[in-house]
Write a protein that binds this DNA or RNA. Structure first.
Lengths: 210, 210
DNA sequence: CCTACCGATCGGTAGG
DNA sequence: CCTACCGATCGGTAGG
């Protein structure tokens, strides 16, 4: 009888991916060493190569599973049938919530995807473009008066507001991720003149199923 | 007699710095090789080490000269004695204008400063914190009603709007850097509901000396 | 200002 | 003839 895969195979693979994401985020992909990763995972290099055929496949798996998660959030929000502004606020909430647990994955997506081979890089970039397109369509629906040439810049500026949090936001401050989502929504929709006491939205995710 | 420095010494150093910034931005500091840099600069490795004592000193010079430039922009804008909202719009314009020619320097500042030694890293980070503090004070002056805990998050969100342009903005599109500055100012002050045809500010930099 | 090197470490794989 | 795993070392290249 052929032996089956260890019941821990997937768990081991997940553990490696988690450690690799952290290492790549901290040191950048090319300078993170496989020896170091293997040590972090408590295994020998040959055993690590049993789970991942090479270093770049590890990078692809990190980026691809993470971008799939973002696509999933976009799709789930679209199924709620909300009006445009509530839809956008829900998306911002869900992204900021996801970001709380995806720091290293996101940093790898931003700074290391360029080190993938062309085929794999294009696959990740295409999914990423889908996420951006969903936000852009929603913004165009929200503000039909917005000149077409401004939709992309405005959309990317919203991503800047959210994604820049990875460079400075720490959960130990006075504001948590849910609070950050409200600040981003409020700033993006109404600007700083629309921010401050008593101008907050309530969370739109209350009572919305995942 | 001691030999004098070549009259081209500073020019050579500048050329090296420019090429190094590009290489570090593209490949990340640890994986960019000195041999590759020397070849780009058309010189041997030993000659390159004549201008810069080691790899990390090159990284420090890139980050430090660039952050000094940003501090200079902040100081020059403060000397204009403008009201808070015009002051902020001028700062956003000047930053976006500077960003047009500082792509690689900025990317190195964001992604590679962590590879500096502690002393040098702290020096750069302190200057960077000064730039952020100047924006934060201005925003607090613009919106005194803003709860103190929100000033830092709102300020960093503005930096997100500007700094994220390095990941997507290309000058060949329908919108140029001056147009991007107007979009960022408009979004930050009045939100997307305040954007669109006929809601644009004129440039505040018209007639303002540098 | 060059060629020639160093100690160390890289990603990946051999035999068992 | 498979999967799981080790100690040791491969050919090349890094910063200096």
């Amino acid at each position: 009888m052929a032996r089956t895969k260890s019941p821990n195979y997937e768990a081991q693979q997940q553990n490696i991916l988690e450690n690799a994401a952290r290492l790549f985020a901290e040191q950048s992909f090319p300078s993170a060493s496989i020896a170091q990763l293997a040590e972090l995972c408590g295994m020998s290099k040959p055993l690590l190569y049993h789970y991942y055929r090479d270093k770049s496949h590890l990078l692809f798996d990190i980026a691809d599973t993470y971008v799939d998660k973002l696509v999933g959030i976009v799709d789930a929000a679209a199924r709620q049938g909300l009006p445009a502004d509530a839809h956008l606020r829900l998306l911002i909430e869900r992204f900021m919530e996801e970001y709380a647990s995806s720091r290293h994955y996101h940093m790898v997506l931003v700074q290391d995807v360029k080190f993938l081979g062309e085929t794999e890089r294009k696959q990740v970039k295409a999914k990423q473009a889908g996420v951006v397109a969903a936000f852009a369509e929603l913004i165009a629906r929200l503000r039909p008066e917005l000149p077409a040439a401004q939709v992309k810049p405005v959309t990317m500026t919203l991503f800047g507001m959210m994604n820049w949090t990875f460079t400075w936001f720490r959960a130990d401050g006075a504001i948590d991720r849910a609070g950050m989502a409200r600040i981003v929504s409020q700033l993006f929709l109404h600007g700083v003149y629309g921010c401050g006491e008593g101008t907050d939205y309530e969370q739109v995710s209350e009572g919305v199923p995942r």
